[in-house]
C-alpha cells in the first residue's frame, strides 16, 4: 500500500499499531535502516534483503553520512535516518564492542523494532541495554540471532530466503541453522510461516520465548507455533507456564541438547547445563505438561506438525 514517507516518531508509532494486527514485528510496511551498512557483512546482507523485497530505506555508518550505498542514502546517525527516511525498524551488523551502543542509538531515535545480528557482545553491555530498551517500550530481537522474516513481505537478517513460504505457522528459535532446518521441514510438509523469529543464543536477549509467544497468540494470521529451544537457562520453562495460562493456539516444540554433557558450553554462550538446571529433559517435561506437542526427534518436526494440523 503506497503512502507518503512518514516523518518523525508519530508515523513510527502509527506503524506499530498496524503491525500488531498482521504477522508479527516486520511486514511490508517495515522501513528498514541498516546499522553498519557499508561494512562487508552489512553490505552483503543488505543486498540480500533488498533482493527479497525488504524495504531498506537507509543505512548508517558514522563518518560516511552523505554518501550513497546500494542506491540508498547513508547517514551518520540513526536519528537522521528516522527524520529523513521514516525508518521504523533497524538491523545491526556492528562489531561486538560497539553493538550495544548501536542498539541504544536506535532506541533513542524512536525505532520500534531493533534486530541485532551481532554475535559476541559482552553480557554486561547487554544487561544495561536490555533494561534501557524495556523502559522505552521498544522491541529488541537478539543479539546473536539470524533475524526475523515474514515470508513474502520482509526478510530482516541473514537467513536463506528460499526455504521460507508465506503461511500461518509462527516459528521461534534460539538457534540459526536449526531454525532453517525446522522451517525447511515445515515448508516441505506444506506449512508456510507467518513470521519466523530467531531470538538468539545469548544469556541476555531482548525478546524471550514468552514475548514472541504473546505476539503470535495475538496475531490472527498465525494458527500454530513451532518453538525451538535448547539447553541452558529457564526460558523454555517460562514459555511452558505462558503456554499453559494463555496460549489458545497449538505449540510444537523441540529442545536441542539432550545428549550434551553438563557443565560444558555448547557453542552458544547461553547453552550450558549448570548445577543440574537447564537440561533438555526438564524443558521437554515442562512443555509437555503445559500442553505443547513435544517433538523429540529433530528430523520429525514437519511430520509432527502435519499429523496434528492435518
Amino acid at each position: 500500500m503506497p503512502r507518503a514517507a512518514p516523518r518523525g516518531i508519530s508515523a513510527v508509532t502509527d506503524h506499530r499499531r498496524r503491525t500488531d494486527r498482521m504477522s508479527i514485528l516486520v511486514d511490508s510496511d517495515t522501513r528498514l535502516v541498516v546499522q553498519g551498512f557499508t561494512g562487508q557483512e552489512g553490505t552483503f546482507h543488505a543486498e540480500q534483503m533488498i533482493d527479497y523485497g525488504t524495504n531498506v530505506v537507509a543505512g548508517v555508518t558514522p563518518g560516511k553520512g552523505g554518501q550513497t550505498h546500494l542506491d540508498r542514502p547513508v547517514f551518520n546517525t540513526v536519528a537522521e535516518a528516522v527524520e529523513q527516511e521514516g525508518a521504523n525498524t533497524s538491523v545491526i551488523f556492528v562489531p561486538p564492542p560497539f553493538a550495544a551502543d548501536a542498539i541504544q542509538e536506535s532506541v533513542e531515535a524512536g525505532i520500534e523494532v531493533i534486530i541485532c545480528i551481532t554475535e559476541g557482545i559482552p553480557v554486561k553491555d547487554m544487561k544495561s541495554t536490555y533494561h534501557y530498551v524495556q523502559r522505552h517500550g521498544a522491541h529488541l530481537i537478539g543479539p546473536n540471532c539470524p533475524g526475523v522474516i515474514t515470508p513474502g513481505q520482509a526478510k530482516i537478517g541473514i537467513m536463506p530466503a528460499m526455504i521460507f513460504e508465506p503461511g500461518s505457522v509462527g516459528v521461534i528459535s534460539r538457534s540459526g541453522t536449526l531454525t532453517y532446518e525446522a522451517v525447511d521441514q515445515l515448508t516441505r510438509a506444506g506449512y508456510g510461516q507467518s513470521t519466523a523469529v530467531g531470538i538468539g543464543g545469548d544469556p541476555v536477549i531482548g525478546t524471550r520465548f514468552v514475548d514472541a509467544l504473546k505476539l503470535f497468540e495475538d496475531d490472527p494470521d498465525t494458527e500454530a507455533v513451532v518453538l525451538i529451544g535448547e539447553i541452558g537457562g529457564s526460558a523454555e520453562e517460562e514459555a511452558a507456564e505462558y503456554i499453559q495460562a494463555h496460549m489458545s493456539k497449538p505449540v510444537f516444540s523441540f529442545i536441542a541438547g539432550r545428549t550434551a554433557p553438563p557443565g560444558r558450553r555448547m557453542g552458544h554462550a547461553g547453552a550450558i547445563v549448570s548445577g543440574g538446571s537447564g537440561t533438555a529433559e526438564a524443558k521437554f517435561a515442562a512443555l509437555e505438561k503445559a500442553g505443547a506437542v513435544v517433538v523429540k526427534n529433530p528430523a520429525l518436526i514437519g511430520e509432527t506438525v502435519s499429523e496434528h494440523l492435518g
Partner: peptide, 17 residues
C-alpha cells in the same frame, strides 16, 4: 561436523536416536 551450534546439538541428539 555441523554448521551452527543449535543444529550441532540437534545432530548429536539424532545420532543417539
Amino acid at each position: 561436523m555441523v554448521n551452527g551450534a543449535g543444529l550441532a546439538m540437534a545432530t548429536m541428539d539424532i545420532i543417539k536416536l
